[in-house]
Design a protein around this nucleic acid. Structure first.
Length: 358
DNA sequence: TCTGGGGTCCTAGGACCC
DNA sequence: TCTGGGGTCCTAGGACCC
């Protein structure tokens, strides 16, 4: 008899966006498929997902479509169809909820499962089966004793596999790898760590916490040291997600060159954001503007409103006031963000300083 | 070579108050 | 005239994730 232990599983759909497209275009199976922007590789846009056939030619998500087309002119370029992926995602999550585990949705194509079981591999295989049966989509599953380990384990299971990463094999698997392979360490932090002489996961795990706190602050310093050991949150939480804000942004195919163009665009974006805000019924606390000047300078500004408001005109006026503070330069991207009053600001619980939705 | 659009959370530093 | 600590709030910016 095995012992029932608390496990974290991380489920990640394989090439999700490309896979959804392939389901409704079976004739494209086996061909390199690149999904991004409006599907026009001459436009300013980036790759959302490349099929495995396209990845073999070096096409990666986040890559400009123009570069992808240069690497792979014969690829099939498809527009992003967010509604189709949302619908498929709903089916995936519904299937996962039949397993009797706690399901914490991370995004379109990812979820944590929390369960007490003596056979986590069996649960992982059942997760793959129910998802495949419901959607004809394949997924990989990571098994861990913390969220971080489960999440990282998934990468070793791809495609369509299962991998277990726990305290037992953490250093064997991860110890000699670069810190950037950790979830939550990107280029900037890995470079700063290298400046401290910390290059591998093992070196991070063994680094004095005071050094890390001095470099990154009280929360992040401790967080990074724990990350080196694979430690972190273990609780899978299925409580409904409450967004902290809504934003809309647009990259212009031709840069905006005049004040009037910028003001008009801010007006349009702000009204779009207000529609999203109206849909969830809360009031706006703060308004923000994100601007990308040509070639690639990003500026973010934000202002707290005099009080929480549902009056669209007040919000638009505040956004336009921010726009008037912008430099007189060519604008290639504009974004507007509204932050909202949280239902119970005091009771947000322990946050996990891994960026993005967790 | 040329970099989307949607998010979240953390930190530094200034303003202001006691 | 020159000067504490401590706290909170706000803005701006940084970093990362899918």
């Amino acid at each position: 008899m095995g012992t029932r232990t608390a496990w974290v599983l991380h489920v990640d759909l394989d090439q999700f966006v490309a896979a959804v497209e392939l389901l409704r275009r079976p004739e494209l199976a086996g061909r390199p498929v690149v999904v991004g922007g409006r599907g026009d590789p001459t436009e300013r846009a980036v790759v959302s997902t490349a099929s495995y056939e396209a990845r073999a030619f070096g096409v990666r998500s986040g890559m400009p479509l123009k570069i992808a087309a240069r690497k792979l002119p014969d690829a099939v370029f498809l527009p992003v169809d967010a509604h189709a992926y949302e619908a498929a995602s709903e089916e995936v999550m519904t299937a996962l909820r039949t397993l009797g585990a706690v399901v914490e949705v991370l995004g379109w194509d990812e979820a944590f499962l929390g369960a007490e079981t003596d056979d986590p591999e069996g649960l992982a295989r059942r997760a793959q089966e129910v998802v495949l049966d419901a959607t004809r989509l394949h997924c990989s599953v990571g098994i861990g004793d913390t969220k971080v380990r489960a999440k990282i384990a998934t990468g070793f299971g791809k495609p369509a596999g299962v991998f277990r990463l726990t305290a037992e094999n953490w250093f064997d698997v991860m110890g000699d790898r670069a810190t950037i392979e950790l979830w939550g360490v990107g280029t900037k932090v890995s470079r700063r760590l290298a400046g401290l002489g910390v290059r591998t996961v093992r070196e991070l795990a063994e680094a004095p916490v005071e050094t890390l706190v001095a470099e990154f602050g009280p929360r992040m310093g401790v967080w990074y040291r724990d990350l080196g050991q694979g430690l972190g949150p273990t609780t899978v939480d299925d409580s409904p997600w409450v967004p902290r804000g809504h934003s809309r942004e647009t990259t212009f195919q031709q840069n905006l060159t005049s004040r009037d163009e910028v003001r008009a665009a801010v007006d349009v974006l702000t009204r779009q954001v207000l529609e999203d805000v109206a849909a969830d019924g809360r009031a706006v606390l703060r308004i923000g503007l994100k601007v990308r000047y040509a070639p690639f300078i990003t500026k973010v500004m934000s202002r707290k409103l005099p009080g929480p408001t549902r009056e669209g005109d007040v919000v638009v006026a505040a956004a336009l006031a921010l726009a008037d503070e912008l430099e007189d330069r060519e604008v290639r991207l504009l974004g507007v963000r509204a932050e909202m009053v949280m239902p119970d600001e005091a009771d947000r619980g322990e946050r996990t300083p891994v960026r993005g939705r967790i």
